[in-house]
Computed example of a mutant assay.
Amino acid sequence: MRFLVVGGSGLIGAHVVDVLRERGHEVTATARSARAGVDHVLELGSASVEELRPLLSGLDGVVYAARTDEQAPLRKPIHPVFRQDMVDPVVRLFAAARQENLSRGVIMGSYYTYFDRLHPQWRLPERHTYIRCRVEQAAEGRAAAGPQLPVAVIELPFVFGRAGDRLPNWAGPLDRWARSRSPLAMPAGGTAATTARSVAEVAADALEQASGADLPVADENLTWQDMIARIAGAVGRPRRVGRLPGGVVRAGMRAGGMMQALGRKESGINPSHFADLLLADLFIEAPTGRSLDPAIRETFGPAA
C-alpha cells in the first residue's frame, strides 16, 4: 500500500516511515523544512484542501504526526491559536483525503483524551486548552474524513527514543537535571510510557487493518520517581530520587498559574490544575510489558 506521513522527519513520524517501509509499503514523508528523508516540504498549517489533494492522490492512507508545544505560554486567548495549529490542519488534511478516496488514516494524539473518557469528572478539556483541542482534533478530523475513511487515534503517553537528532521535546530539561549535582525529587503519581518504535508498530497495524479505533499505547507504567531514577542511571549519575510533598507541588503550580494570569498569558496545560495530573497515576491498562530501558538509554545516553 501507499501512504503519506505528515511530520515524517520527527521522532514519531520517522519511525512510522521506517516501520511501514520495512513491511513493504511505499511511503512519502512531508515536513515543515527540508532535511534528509523528507520527500516534500509542506507547511500544513497554511495548506488548503486543494493544495493537499495532489499529495494524496493515488494513496491508500495518511498519517498525521506533527508536533505541538503545549507548555509554551501565549497571550490570551490561546484556544484560537491552538485550534489553528492542531485542529484546522487535521480537518483540511482528512477532508482532502476523503475527496481523494483514501481508505485509512491515523492521527497521533495524546493519552489525555484516554483519561478524559476514563475520568470525565476530571473536566480535562474544560481546564486545559491543549486537551480540549486534542478532543476536538480527533472528533473533527474523523468527521472530515467521513465513515468511508476510518481514522485511528493513537493516544500517546511519554515517548522515549530518538530519530537521528530528533528527541522528545521534554528530554532536554530532564537530561540536564539528571546530569547536574542537584538533588532529585518527584511527587507521587506516575505516567504510562512507550517508545517511538512501539508507536510506529501500532500505527502500521492500524493502517493495515483500516482501524478507526482509539488506541492508547503503553509499554510500561512508571512512577515519576522510577522514571527519573532510570533517566539518572542512563546519564551515568544514578542516585536516590526523593518524594516531593503533594502540598508543595500544588502550591508551586498555583503560583505558576498566578504568574501567567498576571502576565495575561496561558499555556495549553493550565499550571493551576497541572498538580492534579502530576499527582495522579496516569497509567494505561494493559501495557505490553516491553522494557523501556534500551529506549531510555537511547534518549539519555552519551549522545543525548
Rank of each mutant, 00 (worst) to 15 (best):
V19D: 09
G37E: 11
L20Q: 08
V16H: 06
L59E: 11
L20T: 04
E26S: 14
F3P: 00
D60F: 05
V19L: 08
S48P: 07
V16R: 01
F3D: 02
S46P: 01
D60K: 03
D60G: 06
E70F: 14
L44K: 01
R53H: 06
A31M: 01
A34H: 11
V63A: 10
G7M: 03
E51S: 10
D18R: 14
A36T: 14
V6K: 07
L56Q: 10
E70P: 01
R67V: 14
R53P: 02
E51K: 08
G8E: 01
V41K: 12
G13R: 00
V19A: 06
G61L: 09
H25Y: 02
T30S: 14
T68M: 06
S48G: 14
S33P: 01
S48A: 11
R32K: 11
S46L: 04
V6W: 08
E43S: 10
R32L: 14
L55Y: 11
Y64E: 13
A66R: 07
D39M: 08
D69M: 00
V16P: 00
T30Q: 05
S48Q: 10
R67N: 10
T30D: 05
I12V: 15
A65C: 09
R21F: 11
V38D: 09
A66P: 07
V49W: 06
D18P: 00
E43Y: 11
L11Q: 04
V17S: 02
V38T: 15
T28W: 13
G37I: 04
L44C: 04
E51F: 02
V62A: 10
S33R: 15
V16S: 03
V63E: 14
R21H: 09
R35F: 06
V27Q: 07
R32A: 09
V5N: 05
T30G: 06
S33L: 11
L42D: 07
A14P: 01
V38K: 03
L11K: 02
R67H: 15
S33Q: 15
S9G: 12
V41L: 08
G10D: 06
D18S: 08
G13T: 00
A47P: 02
V49M: 05
G8V: 00
G10M: 04
G7N: 07
T68D: 04
D69G: 00
H15W: 12
A66Y: 05
S46T: 15
A31T: 00
A36Y: 02
A14L: 03
A29Q: 04
V5L: 06
S57A: 15
A29F: 09
V49Y: 09
F3I: 03
H40R: 15
V41S: 08
V6Y: 10
V49L: 07
G13S: 05
V17R: 03
L55K: 10
T28I: 15
Y64D: 08
G61Y: 10
V63P: 06
L56P: 05
G37V: 06
T30K: 02
L56F: 08
V16T: 12
A47D: 09
A65P: 04
